[in-house]
């Protein structure tokens, strides 16, 4: 069996904002096709980690390599590199002056310089893929939260990324709308997209993740397949977090069996 190819490699990542150290020498690896879910308490640095991967937040030190490109290297064309990394944000961040189709085709047309016709075709295809083929001409203000997030996913996919980063994609959605977004993400994972998802949706982590990473205080505390990490956590901090989680949100997603 061929060795799983390492597509994202993060070594000793450090980041501080003024006096506050958020990432303290974090290291992790993601293989091609892997779906990785990162869990952890607020302030553990999960979002900062994602933003460092595409250097939207520049790392203070450490080495990040994505699909062969050293993001932390000097002289790197970050704009070109970012085209290969898709990112989905907690607050959707759709372009408010463009329709769903406009949002999805802006990148391909203006950044990748794909001819308009081809970009429109591709855009429609991506929107259909996330179940929004009937909302092409709607503006973000006319879409529900779940629909907006799905447009955001389609927007990222239209750029043909080799990895997708999801930063708490359902945290801004009311519970009835999270399902439709998680379904899209589950499908993506099944189709083999390499993805890193920061989320509190434990059910999703159990069902979809190949690997779950528990972060606290800016480092990786423990990682493993969901069947191990959720059932037999080794580190006492992981145990405490999962117990707390069950206590706060108990019975809900966290209580679901895979």
């Amino acid at each position: 069996m061929p060795e799983p190819e390492c597509i994202i490699s993060i070594e000793d990542l450090r980041k501080s904002f003024g006096p506050t150290t958020v990432l303290r020498g974090l290291s992790l690896e993601v293989s091609r096709g892997e779906a990785v879910v990162i869990i952890g308490p607020s302030g553990s640095g999960k979002s900062t980690l994602l933003q460092c991967i595409n250097q939207l937040t520049p790392a203070d030190s450490g080495r990040i390599v994505v699909d062969g490109i050293e993001m932390t290297g000097s002289g790197i064309d970050l704009n070109a590199a970012r085209q290969r990394i898709g990112m989905v944000f907690q607050d959707f961040n759709l372009f408010k002056h463009l329709t769903a189709l406009g949002n999805v085709t802006l990148g391909p047309i203006r950044v990748r310089r794909i001819p308009r016709e081809a970009a429109l075709e591709r855009g429609k295809h991506e929107l259909e893929r996330v179940g929004l083929g009937h909302r092409l001409d709607h503006y973000p203000a006319q879409l529900s939260g779940g629909e907006q997030q799905r447009v955001a996913i389609a927007r990222a996919l239209a750029m043909d990324p080799s990895v997708m980063l999801f930063d708490e994609p359902t945290s801004s959605l009311d519970p009835t709308l999270t399902g439709e977004v998680l379904d899209v993400m589950r499908k993506l994972a099944q189709e083999g997209m390499t993805m890193i998802v920061v989320t509190h949706e434990m059910g999703f982590a159990r069902q979809v993740a190949d690997k779950v990473i528990f972060m606290q205080d800016g480092v990786v505390v423990e990682q493993g397949p969901p069947s191990e990490l959720f059932v037999r956590p080794r580190d006492p901090r992981t145990v405490a977090f999962l117990a707390n989680f069950e206590a706060l949100w108990g019975g809900g997603e966290a209580g679901k069996r895979p």
């Binding site: 970012r82 085209q83 607050d91 759709l94 927007r155 750029m159």
Partner: peptide
């Protein structure tokens, strides 16, 4: 205009 839109634009590789 919320800065998030600019962040998203940079995330897809816009200068």
């Amino acid at each position: 205009i919320d800065a998030g839109q600019i962040t998203a634009a940079r995330a897809i590789g816009m200068t």
